[in-house]
Amino acid sequence: MTATLVSPDATAPIDLGGKGQPLADKTFRWILFLCLAVGIVFLFVLLAYVTIKGWPRLTPTLWENMPSIRRPEQAGAQSAITGTLWVITFTALFALPVGFLGAVYMEEYANPTSRFTRFVEINIQNLAAVPSIVYGILGLAIFARALALGQTVITAGLTLALLVLPVIIVSTREALRAVPQNIRHGSLALGATLWQTTWRQTMPAAIPGMATGTILALSRAIGEAAPLLLLGAVSFISFNPTGPFSAYTTLPIQIFNWTKESREEFQILASATIVLLLVILLAMNAVAILIRNRTQKRW
């Protein structure tokens, strides 16, 4: 073993060129890149396809006009846009306070080692994985039938709120957990109560994270069609919702209905509406990313 101990300045010329990157290393790198590319490429193909197809109808009539069965070239999606806004407003109204406060309980108040807390924790994660159609059935049975709320905006809002609640709870908990423990201790050591500490220190510090998670959860709700189909979102509606107990339709439902039609005009209309929906969703995600980047690492 003495050879390895010879100091480098001995006799051999120094070659720092190495053996070059082995082929296996390069191949692996490309395989990894291709796997990533699959997802991205398909997103862009989809975007390009619907944009090109829906291009003729991407005009203000799309959001100014009401749907029409007889005159697809004049039809628009205004009732679906306002319906989506109504439904998502009620979803947020129900899901945000409940989700935030539930998460605060789990993160700040509950004893993390207790059996009950762990049971709840596992089940929240399970709930996040439940298919949305199951929430549709639940909403139909409880909100539409048992509570006799019928096929209304409020039923849809409540059901979608249940759907996104686990996501909001999980992301809020993560945001709260990211607040350093020594902020809480600093507050408590001054004689603040747990509630004062949570309300004045922990939650304000967690707001950016909470906002990001919330926006992503709501954008999931906006894209949902399955539970609303069960809940009786109306397939053809030519007026905007007038209140929480109004009939409604939403963008995904409207798209679904138009794609069922055989006439080419409806297909174009559907593509244009898909672009509209995607723009809304991407815009919401962009806002979430913006908030995240703006507020990263303050401690």
């Binding site: 350093p180 020594n182 902020i183 201790h185 600093g186 507050s187 408590l188 050591a189 001054l190 004689g191 603040a192 109560t193 220190q201 304000p204 510090a205 303050r298 401690w299």
Partner: peptide, 19 residues
């Protein structure tokens, strides 16, 4: 304990100023 902590303050190892 809240009353105890009001009378007996604490300074921590890492300066934990509030944001």
């Amino acid at each position: 304990p809240i009353e105890v902590r009001r009378r007996i303050g604490m300074v921590f190892q890492k300066p934990n100023v509030f944001p």
